[in-house]
Write a protein that binds this DNA or RNA. Structure first.
Lengths: 137, 137
DNA sequence: GGTTTACCTAGTAAGTCTGTAGGTAATATA
DNA sequence: TATATTACCTACAGACTTACTAGGTAAACC
């Protein structure tokens, strides 16, 4: 599996926002109920989206969250990379602690690299606006 | 991440076999040392490959494992699906306990389906023979 | 001051990943 | 027949991830 509930919930929430009046702030509670997602769990997801500047947030009554760009300006890739951390097909090809010592001689490396690029291109080619209009590829 | 060490080890082992005399049986110990994989962990992977008929196995001295087809007859997809269980991009689109109740109205479903097909086509289009000859796509 | 909202830290039960440990069964060789 | 060599089997375990829950604090509005 490449995309967990965290990324999928983030996408659903962004689509939900996109379906509403773009000027209106919607409280987390309302989104959570509308999407049947645990309110507390959704908090952690909204925190990520808010911190990254994907949504505006205001406190207090009448507050909540709203998109700050047009739906077509959010790629699915940008949302998934933000919430999932990485969309890499294998852990070994990345830099860092999981990096593989056989990278130099790995006969599968070009395959993983090509797959990573294919997946990235795929997700970067789809926007929230595409999902809104019942995306069919 | 979509492919864990289990699947990657399986691929490496299959490539290792393909580089040897196809008639010769190679003991697990030798493969494990050659690939620097834990012998005990590799046992569990070979058990899967053997049970599925991907390799022949014989007990006793002079025994071990060997391929029973030509390298070009093993797709990467068949090996990964066998060892990983599934290559699905999301858990919710599959049948079974993880199935999503929103399948009917899910606006992202066509996207996941298309991605799954893309990944499947990708892996089914590459064979062990391709990896042998330094696959470059 | 009180309500409504976002924001923050911490914990946790269940599952997965990556192995280990210790045996039994089959085959070849002496 | 005895012994070594190999595959095969069951069970466990520590670290990590996933998908939450619990309980607060801070900001904005009335």
């Amino acid at each position: 599996m490449i995309v967990s509930t965290k990324g999928r919930y983030a996408l659903r929430v962004m689509v939900n926002f996109a379906q509403r009046d773009s000027a209106e702030y919607v409280p987390l509670k309302e989104i959570a109920e509308s999407e049947e997602i645990s309110q507390k769990y959704l908090e952690s997801i909204m925190a990520v989206l808010s911190k990254a500047g994907f949504v505006d947030a205001v406190h207090g009554k009448g507050g909540g969250y709203r998109l700050n760009r047009k739906p077509e300006e959010y790629t699915v890739g940008s949302i998934l990379k933000l919430t999932e951390g990485s969309l890499a097909a294998v852990s070994c090809s990345s830099q860092g602690p999981a990096a593989c010592s056989r990278t130099q001689c790995c006969q599968a490396k070009p395959m993983w690299d090509k797959l990573d690029k294919m997946i990235d291109d795929f997700f970067e080619g789809i926007t929230i606006a595409d999902l809104l209009s019942a995306y069919e590829g």
